[in-house]
Simulated assay, not measured.
Amino acid sequence: MIDYIGIPTRQLELMKAFYETALAPLGYEKVFEHEQGAGFGQDGEIALWIVATGSDGRGVNIALQSQDRVGVVRFYNAAMANGASSNGGPALRPEFHPDFFAAFVIDPDGNNLSAICRTHE
């Protein structure tokens, strides 16, 4: 299952305003914001990220849910063994959520792919 999708932009302020307005009728609101982007969702859970991108041309960011932390580690190892480059190895990232355990890779075509577990396991 998809955890969230990230859309890169070179027009961060414009895109934040656009999505805040466009998603409001669906019950989405800005849940999290920092200098490089903003997350939109419902009930405090982010479903869509708008992320500033530079000239690196990175593509979309897709985060997939893992049932446990072991799955996150296995995802990372399998991706790295098959041509991905690391964008952040398996680790707890409490700045996003107290149980946010994730690993991030860049696929061979330049997209960010991640696996996320939000449980203690």
Rank of each mutant, 00 (worst) to 15 (best):
A115M: 04
E35N: 14
E29H: 10
P90Y: 02
P98F: 01
Q67A: 05
A24W: 05
R74S: 12
A84G: 04
Y4G: 09
I106W: 04
D68G: 04
Q36S: 07
R93H: 11
D109E: 08
A78V: 13
G71F: 02
V73K: 01
Y19M: 06
G110T: 12
P8S: 09
A81V: 07
G110K: 11
E45N: 10
A115Q: 10
M15H: 12
Y76H: 07
S55V: 09
G59H: 10
P8F: 14
A24V: 11
G37W: 07
V72N: 00
Q11C: 05
G54N: 07
H120A: 15
E45A: 07
E45V: 05
G37R: 14
Q42W: 00
L14S: 10
L23S: 06
P98E: 14
D3P: 00
C117K: 11
R69L: 01
S114K: 09
A91I: 07
N112P: 06
L92N: 10
S86Q: 04
V73N: 00
F100N: 06
K30E: 15
A22S: 10
Q36N: 09
K16L: 13
D107A: 09
E13D: 13
G44I: 06
D56M: 11
H120N: 12
A22R: 11
D109H: 10
P108Q: 06
R69G: 00
A38E: 15
Q65P: 03
Q67R: 11
F101R: 00
Q67S: 08
L113C: 08
E33T: 14
N111C: 08
N87P: 05
M1S: 04
M1V: 12
G6V: 02
A22L: 13
V60D: 01
